[in-house]
C-alpha cells in the first residue's frame, strides 16, 4: 500500500513536532508547516493526501487554506485540529466531503483518533 502523505499545519511548535512524530510512528509520511502560505507553496511541489489543519494561523487562517488547497488538489482530505472548542466550520467547508465532519479539539488525549479518521477518509476517496 502506498504510504499516505500527511501535512501538519500548526503554528505551535510542540504540537507540530509531536504530531508529526506520531504520524511517522504510525507509518505516515508526515511533514509540518508553520503557516498556510508555506504549506501551499510546499504542496505545489510535494502534494499530500491529507492535512491536519489548525485554524488559528499567523497569516491566512485554516479555513481559507482548506479552500485554497481544495481548489488545487481536490483529492486532498482535511482534518481540523483546533484549540478553540467553540469552533464551527463555516458553512461552505462544512459541505465539503473532503473535510472531516469531526472537529478535533486540542488537546487530544489520544491521537489515535486522528489516525483512524485519516484512514477512513482516505479510504473513501
Amino acid at each position: 500500500m502506498k504510504t499516505i502523505r500527511v501535512l501538519v499545519l500548526d503554528d505551535d511548535k510542540t504540537v507540530r513536532e509531536s504530531l508529526t512524530a506520531y504520524l511517522e510512528d504510525m507509518g505516515y509520511e508526515a511533514w509540518a508547516m508553520v503557516d498556510a502560505e508555506s504549506a501551499l507553496a510546499h504542496l505545489a511541489r510535494v502534494p499530500a493526501d491529507a492535512a491536519i489543519v489548525d485554524i488559528r494561523l499567523p497569516g491566512m487562517n485554516g479555513e481559507e487554506f482548506i479552500r485554497a488547497a481544495h481548489e488545487h488538489w481536490p483529492q486532498m482530505v482535511f482534518l481540523v485540529y483546533t484549540g478553540s472548542p467553540t469552533f464551527q466550520s463555516p458553512t461552505d467547508i462544512r459541505g465539503f466531503k473532503r473535510v472531516s465532519k469531526q472537529i478535533f479539539v486540542k488537546p487530544l488525549s489520544d491521537m489515535n483518533l486522528l489516525h483512524l479518521e485519516i484512514q477512513q477518509m482516505v479510504k473513501k476517496r
Binding site: T14, V15, R56, G83, S84, T86, L108, M111
Partner: peptide, 16 residues
C-alpha cells in the same frame, strides 16, 4: 482557551 489548549496539546501529544 485556544492559548491553553495548544500547550496542553503539545504536552499530551509529546507524552503519547
Amino acid at each position: 482557551a485556544h492559548e491553553i489548549n495548544n500547550p496542553l496539546a503539545g504536552m499530551m501529544q509529546n507524552a503519547e
